[in-house]
Write a protein that binds this DNA or RNA. Structure first.
Lengths: 234, 234
DNA sequence: GTGCCATACTTACGCTGTACGTGTTGTACG
DNA sequence: CGTACAACACGTACAGCGTAAGTATGGCAC
């Protein structure tokens, strides 16, 4: 009773955030996201549930962290040459593959409200692709909404609005400024949206408009295929 | 103690599924979906939690039922005349309005795995619109995937696969036959998918193909807008 | 040595969904 | 009218959850 704990203490690898996240990811991979509880993750590490709270704020934070681990597995773009559609498509499929390795990821991602660092980095790189292809700021913004999280490798709307649109404007300014260094393209869009909606309450984007924009984009594309099909066959 | 219960019993309206579902919907509307527990719903009806189980199988079933209530509020189509895109668009926006009346609905719908009756009816009517506009079976199938639950008034993939693709084939046949009467258009698609994948394991649809189909549809639409924008300005 | 600080452990609270057994009810039939 | 019955609300109980709060056990700076 006096020796046992000491020896156990000695050869115990100390916990850290990375180990906690990795254990959680492994558990979710193996037994599904519904089997993931703080107690089970602790068990996985030979540790009590409460010990995890030294490294993650709460379960929400744990899920955010797990997601970030998955997103960190998205390979960087191979090339920057050629048709933007090819580059974009390729990168989306890479992201899709990363997410498919962790089947729980796509269901978790939709329940999150704040983007993780790797998420921001990824989005920034995708925005960069279309911007460099000559998309206007406006069109870029609409494009990202239309693609929704198809950009992430599956089909689903991303976040409700740009973080907390109702927050302190001064804080927002600072946040955007800090973001601008790391994620210039994303920051550009955020600034624009913010400017457009200076006097507007609620969400930073016109959800109704963005929804109809995306809907019409698809309907028009389908109409084109319909008329082609009409020309080819009956 | 002997009289009290009797009088209370007398003027108690007996529970039924509809009352349970309505109380649950009201509670979720008022206090959010995370506040919805069996105990709270019971409380809402002046009844213990366990009494609800006489009318719903479990919480999953309760959520399915609640969703069906919301979907039943989608108004029937106004007209069947004119451009299919206009008709389709109009109906989607009607569905969107119904879902917006219950903010929790869109988050709940994505966690469901089986379509509810009203859901099937709605999908059937949407498939009917494009079929009557001359879409081939194939194109219709791809179209529904591409639209995802944009058809429902928000953007998100629908169900993992067509119900239980791995189930007993004989049971499936029966199911499809029964479906054919009520939902002819939906049944037609289901039959086709089933036929195409006779010898294929896993999901009833080629997820990879459908995903890329939808992605390319949007990318092509965006490319068109990009080149137009290039011609007009810059 | 001594104090400090990080961190792991323990206990406990209030909540969840729901299995199981009991009692009361309105209704159908002799 | 009396009785049997099926429907159904109730109460209790259990295993699990996230996490607040307090306690014990290191390694490390002085």
């Amino acid at each position: 009773m006096t020796i046992e704990p000491q020896t156990r203490e000695r050869d115990r690898i100390p916990l850290d955030r990375q180990r906690v996240l990795q254990a959680a990811v492994q558990l979710a991979d193996r037994e599904g996201i519904e089997a993931l509880s703080m107690r089970r993750v602790g068990q996985q590490l030979g540790v009590e549930a409460m010990s995890l709270y030294n490294h993650v704020a709460n379960k929400e934070d744990l899920l955010d962290g797990m997601l970030d681990v998955v997103l960190s597995e998205i390979d960087p773009p191979l090339t920057d040459e050629g048709d933007w559609r090819r580059i974009f498509h390729e990168r989306v499929m890479t992201a899709r593959r990363a997410l498919k390795r962790h089947p729980w990821a796509s269901t978790v991602i939709v329940s999150r409200v704040n983007p993780t660092p790797h998420m921001l980095a990824y989005m920034d790189s995708m925005i960069g692709i279309v911007r460099r292809a000559g998309f206007s700021l406006d069109l870029t913004h609409h494009a990202m909404h239309a693609l929704g999280s198809r950009t992430m490798g599956f089909a689903q709307e991303l976040f409700e609005d740009s973080a907390d649109a109702g927050a302190d404007p001064a804080v927002m300014d600072l946040m955007i400024k800090q973001m601008a260094e790391q994620f210039p393209y994303a920051a550009e869009i955020a600034t624009k949206v913010r400017h457009d909606n200076e006097s507007v309450v609620g969400s930073g984007c016109d959800d109704q408009f963005e929804f109809e924009f995306g809907l019409n984009l698809i309907l028009d594309g389908l109409e084109r295929l319909r008329s082609e099909q009409g020309a080819a066959a009956s």
